[in-house]
Design a protein around this nucleic acid. Structure first.
Ligand code: FES
Ligand code: FES
Lengths: 153, 153
DNA sequence: CTTATTTTAACATAAATATATAGAAATTAT
DNA sequence: ATAATTTCTATATATTTATGTTAAAATAAG
């Protein structure tokens, strides 16, 4: 019913990929490698990475040996920041952040509901960092490995 | 960052409008009146009301004197049902309900997060009925009246 | 120091989907 | 019959999603 745009979805995976390869902030990852690993069109990734750069979530290093790297340690980057950079606003409906959007705010009962739901999401995504995602990812992968191992034996 | 489509937004207001005029289920409201009161294009409302009818949330009465009315008492219609009817699925990303959508589900760490966020919303909207919205609306309006009265005195 | 290579950056375009409007046929009450 | 109203179908516009093409910057090699 509510759609996270592909930008937000792909952007989160792009950032998680950079986080996986994050060492000290100096080693850059080229988009081609993200594109291959995440199976997302490189042309589209190029567009998605721009707002991430503008919002200082990634650093770009041009030229040979260059690429992109996280601007900060994964534990210092919240999912809400990524989504905010990519989708502009952080709410289900425009009127929650732009009071001019809807002239009916004063009397609109649905507004209250969209507002609270937006806050729910904001809280949830505000408490998840890239580091958390890495840990979820690791847990998931070790589980898979364990599974396939027990199958083979 | 996450957008509730206009269908969902307008649909919720359409349903709330019908709820306001709900008597016993026999008195129909014409879309023109909803269109005027809610300031939504009548042509667009016509399209939005169809899935609501298919999902048996409203009843239509054709011909002169006809219109639309809620299929059940406002307290028996959940917001989640309305959104489900209008947006098809009830989740932030397709992969949550359609496992074929994303081939990476098994290893995708972001999936877990979208899934939990979807559940948060599902729970929230599943606990709000049209009756609740009516009450929110009434509280809001009496507040406004009280305010404008105190201004005039 | 010059040239070739790697990579980001910028711009343009195409395809798909969401949003919105328009017209007319079908149904019903009076 | 006539007027009111839903229902169906078509079309226009805007936005999102995705691909392609070229230019600019930085590095590496000779
Ligand atoms: S105030 Fe924007 S939908 Fe009600
Ligand atoms: S985004 Fe669909 S499984 Fe990760």
């Amino acid at each position: 019913m509510i759609r996270l745009s592909t930008k937000g979805r792909y952007g989160a995976r792009l950032m998680l990929n950079l986080a996986h390869h994050y060492k000290n902030g100096n080693e850059a990852v080229i988009l081609k490698s993200v594109s291959d690993e995440e199976e997302i069109s490189i042309r589209y990734l190029e567009q998605i990475v721009i707002p991430l750069k503008i919002n200082r979530l990634v650093k770009s290093i041009r030229g040979a040996g260059g690429g992109y790297t996280l601007a900060r340690h994964p534990s210092k980057i919240k999912l809400s920041e990524i989504l905010h950079a990519l989708e502009g606003s952080c709410c289900l409906v425009e009127c929650v952040e732009d009071s001019d959007f809807c002239s009916r705010m004063g009397i609109c009962a649905t507004y209250e509901v969209w507002k609270k739901a937006s806050d729910l999401l904001k809280d949830y995504f505000g408490n998840i960092t890239l580091q958390d995602l890495i840990e979820i990812s690791n847990r998931k992968n070790t589980k898979i490995k364990a599974k396939s191992k027990s199958k083979n034996n």
